[in-house]
């Protein structure tokens, strides 16, 4: 396989990561959101392996495997168990309606394209064009955290942001040092556990996981 084809595979996978980000933005059902998150992780993991092959950086294979085990298998499993245990069946409520959210998402993609233009000019890596997609994924994750009311969807948004950051590191510099990546992976895992514990407390206190309820904690002045 020549470099040209691999570069195309790389940008195709980047497009798929962006597509799953948008699909998550438009998805109403929480179970499908978890599945989409797992798909995003899978594309990211394959992409990391491809970049590892192109750049012959062997530590990227390890982080690819790490992504596969944590973001495709472990985290979706934990989230799934959470959804089942907390008996979440309702559709996700959104603050802004979905077509508007998607239009904002498109604007964010264009914004991040312009933002990364100087980096693209300087860089010589073959993955440089996917940097805009990575930044867009981070921003769409953030947008998802802003526009959703439900605590679990906000966490999925947060994890999607982390996916974007990981992708950005891969496409900008062929990945962070392995120690950093191991640390981040562990952090994300621990965070998921802590979130789970918090969710149980929130749902027992408020009978709901909608973060709007927490506004009643505010002190009147």
């Amino acid at each position: 396989m020549n470099l040209q084809v691999l570069a195309q595979v790389n940008s195709f996978l980047a497009a798929l990561v962006l597509l799953t980000a948008f699909a998550m933005l438009s998805q109403r059902k929480i179970n499908s959101l978890v599945t989409l998150f797992a798909w995003q992780g899978l594309f990211l993991s394959i992409n990391t392996a491809v970049v590892g092959f192109v750049a012959s950086k062997h530590h990227l294979y390890i982080s690819s495997l790490l992504t596969l085990s944590i973001k495709v298998i472990l985290l979706p499993y934990i989230l799934h168990v959470l959804v089942v245990r907390l008996k979440i069946r309702k559709e996700v409520e959104t603050i802004v309606n979905i077509p508007t959210t998607m239009l904002i998402g498109i604007a964010l993609v264009i914004f991040s394209y312009h933002l990364t233009a100087p980096v693209r000019e300087m860089s010589t890596l073959i993955t440089r064009s996917t940097l805009a997609v990575a930044l867009a994924t981070v921003m769409i994750g953030l947008l998802m955290m802003i526009t959703r009311k439900h605590a679990v969807t906000q966490i999925i948004g947060f994890l999607a942001m982390e996916n974007g950051l990981f992708f950005a590191a891969t496409s900008a510099t062929y990945g962070m040092p392995l120690v950093v990546e191991l640390g981040v992976a562990l952090d994300v895992l621990i965070a998921a556990f802590i979130f789970g514990i918090f969710f149980f407390h929130i749902s027992t206190t408020f009978d709901s996981l909608s973060v709007e309820q927490m506004e009643s904690l505010r002190e009147d002045n």
């Binding site: 940008s11 962006l18 438009s26 394209y113 064009s129 997609v133």
Partner: peptide, 23 residues
């Protein structure tokens, strides 16, 4: 339907964007 066709518009726009970003 706005969501269904909104998704179609989104896909098409992503196509245009992907042309400039990735190719």
């Amino acid at each position: 339907l706005t969501e269904f066709l909104g998704a179609a518009f989104l896909m098409a726009t992503l196509g245009v964007i992907a042309f400039f970003i990735l190719e």
